[in-house]
Amino acid sequence: MSLGAEDVKPKAFHAEEGTRESIAVDPVAEKKLVRKIDLHLMPSVFILYLFSYVDRSNLGLAKVAGMEEDLELTSDQYYTAVIMWVIGYTIAAVPSK
């Protein structure tokens, strides 16, 4: 005789207050899943944050170091480049939140 999914007893229950429905969650599987997500996601998030910090500081430092003269940019062109970077940065940051 084989057991179906409805015959298996869950190890733990998590339910929201005020609801009659409950969701069976295996705490061991949940812990393994959270650890796997942390090990794969957190290094990527850290690297992206580091790149964003470097990019934000480099744009201002490049102007001070003479980027405008080297590229023959006017103030309006530099401002347009900064705005384009900020818009791209904002769009890319939305999925990370």
Rank of each mutant, 00 (worst) to 15 (best):
M42W: 04
N58I: 05
V54Y: 05
G66M: 06
D7A: 09
R35I: 06
G66F: 04
P43Y: 10
T74Y: 07
V45G: 01
A24P: 15
K32C: 01
K32Y: 01
M1Y: 01
V64C: 01
E30Y: 00
T74I: 07
E6S: 15
L73M: 15
V34F: 09
K9N: 07
L48M: 12
D26K: 10
Y49H: 05
A29R: 14
L50V: 09
A15H: 02
A12C: 13
F13D: 00
T19D: 14
D38I: 08
M67D: 01
T90Y: 08
A81Y: 01
L39Y: 01
A62W: 02
Y53Q: 13
L33C: 08
S52T: 13
A15I: 05
S2N: 12
E16H: 08
V8L: 13
I91L: 15
E30G: 00
L73W: 11
T19P: 02
L39V: 04
E17N: 14
Y78N: 01
D7R: 04
L33Y: 06
A92D: 14
L71C: 07
S2Q: 14
G66S: 03
I23Q: 07
E16R: 12
G60F: 08
E21V: 01
G4W: 02
D26A: 11
G4R: 09
T74S: 15
L50E: 13
D26Q: 12
S2M: 13
F46K: 13
D70H: 08
V64Y: 02
P43F: 11
Y79A: 13
G4C: 06
F51M: 06
V8I: 15
M42S: 11
F51Y: 03
L48S: 05
E17Q: 15
W85Y: 15
A5P: 00
L3V: 06
E17D: 15
I87K: 14
K63D: 07
M67Y: 02
I83L: 09
E72I: 00
I83F: 04
A29V: 08
I87F: 12
S44H: 04
V94D: 08
G88H: 04
R20F: 13
T19L: 15
A65D: 05
L59M: 14
E17R: 14
S75Q: 13
S44P: 00
K31N: 07
K32H: 01
S57H: 02
K97C: 03
V64W: 03
E30A: 05
A93G: 06
V25D: 04
K63N: 03
Y89C: 06
I23T: 09
V86D: 12
M84D: 04
M42F: 11
V82S: 09
V54W: 03
L48Y: 04
V94H: 10
I37F: 10
G60V: 01
I83Y: 05
E30M: 07
L3W: 14
Y89H: 14
W85M: 11
V25M: 13
K32A: 05
M1C: 02
H14G: 03
E17C: 08
V45H: 11
E6W: 07
L33F: 08
D55P: 01
S22H: 09
V34L: 11
A62H: 03
V86T: 12
L33M: 09
Y49W: 05
G18I: 02
L3M: 14
E68R: 02
